[in-house]
Structure formats: structure tokens, C-alpha cells
């Protein structure tokens, strides 16, 4: 059965499909293209934020099938009709921020969540610096590799699933 939280977004040329249940918070999409994929905004996908070519490039980097795309010309009428504007926005951010209180916003706390057999996901107010002291571009959410295998260190790229990373303390 189709997950009612699934969403699709179009720029007229292509449609991007978003399946929150498949998302492992690798956060590749926002790190690569915050102009399009911004979980702090509603709706969180802005198809006018970049070229079709760039959007396709970043969607292909999603390590799971959480983000997929199709040319509109290859879609049937029924799936094209599902390209509507949603009011009840589901975003990657809401998946980790369900328990956020107003106090946490006030005090600008970063929420750090250790995902089961997965990365360290961070959202809220924070700064990231590398070993050389240089700051990374600030984003509203990110995820750090915990399995040791990522090819985009220090961030998660989904490798933990490929190598079968298990946190035995879970």
C-alpha cells in the first residue's frame, strides 16, 4: 500500500518522488543542494531552486530510494495528477524533531540522535568544524558517519547499510 506520507514535486519537466519511510538521514540532498532540499522550509523541496540537470544529479546521490525522479513525459496521467501542493508537509526534519519543545528553540539546543546501526543525526542550532579548525557550511541538519566507512567523511553517505554496520550496544 502507498505510504500516505509520500510526496512528489515537479518543475514541469521532471518529478521528484520523496518516500520518508526510506530516508536514513544521510542528508546528502541538503548538503549538496540546500537551494532545493531544505528541511527548514515548507514545502521542503523547491523545484525552482536549481536546474533540472543539477536536481537529477543530487537525487541520484541519495543512498536509498527515499528520493527518486522521473521525466514527466514518461509518467502516466494518474501519476502526473498526483503532482499537487501539499499543506501537511512532511520533511526529513520532522522525523527527528517530534519531541521538540518551545524551550529547546529558545535555548537553541542542538539535538543529537544516535541512529540504530546508522549515523549520528544532528538538528537545531550548531556549528561543525574540521580537524583544521575550518568551519563547514552551516546547515539546519546533518549526519555524521559512525561506521567508519563513508567516502564523504565526516558525513554519512549511506555506506553503513552496504557494509552491514552493527552497533552491538543497541
Amino acid at each position: 500500500m502507498e505510504d500516505p506520507r509520500n510526496r512528489q514535486y515537479t518543475n514541469g519537466e521532471i518529478t521528484v518522488f520523496w518516500k520518508p519511510s526510506k530516508c536514513i538521514h544521510a542528508t546528502t540532498c541538503f548538503r549538496e543542494l540546500i537551494e532545493v532540499f531544505n528541511p527548514g522550509r515548507r514545502p521542503w523541496v523547491n523545484m525552482d531552486g536549481a536546474s533540472t540537470r543539477k536536481i537529477i544529479e543530487v537525487v541520484k546521490k541519495c543512498p536509498t530510494q527515499a528520493l527518486e525522479w522521473k521525466y514527466n513525459k514518461d509518467m502516466d496521467e494518474q501519476s502526473l495528477a498526483a503532482n499537487v501542493t501539499y499543506k501537511d508537509e512532511v520533511t526529513p526534519e520532522t522525523l527527528t524533531s517530534q519531541n521538540k519543545s518551545p524551550e529547546q528553540d529558545l535555548h537553541k539546543t542542538a539535538r543529537v540522535k544516535v541512529m540504530k546501526n546508522g549515523p549520528i543525526v544532528v538538528d537545531g542550532h550548531f556549528e561543525v568544524s574540521g580537524a583544521d579548525g575550518n568551519k563547514f557550511r552551516s546547515v539546519v541538519m546533518t549526519s555524521f558517519c559512525r561506521c567508519g566507512g563513508s567516502k564523504s567523511m565526516p558525513f554519512c553517505d549511506g555506506t553503513h547499510r552496504k557494509i552491514g554496520f552493527i552497533d552491538t550496544n543497541e
Binding site: 529547546q104 535555548h107 537553541k108 539535538r111 543529537v112 540522535k113 544516535v114 540504530k116 550548531f126
Partner: peptide, 9 residues
């Protein structure tokens, strides 16, 4: 460090 909250899965 700083203002953070660490959660398990």
C-alpha cells in the same frame, strides 16, 4: 560540546 542533547535511537 556546548548546548546539546544526546539521544539514543
Amino acid at each position: 560540546s556546548g548546548n546539546f542533547e544526546l539521544f539514543d535511537s
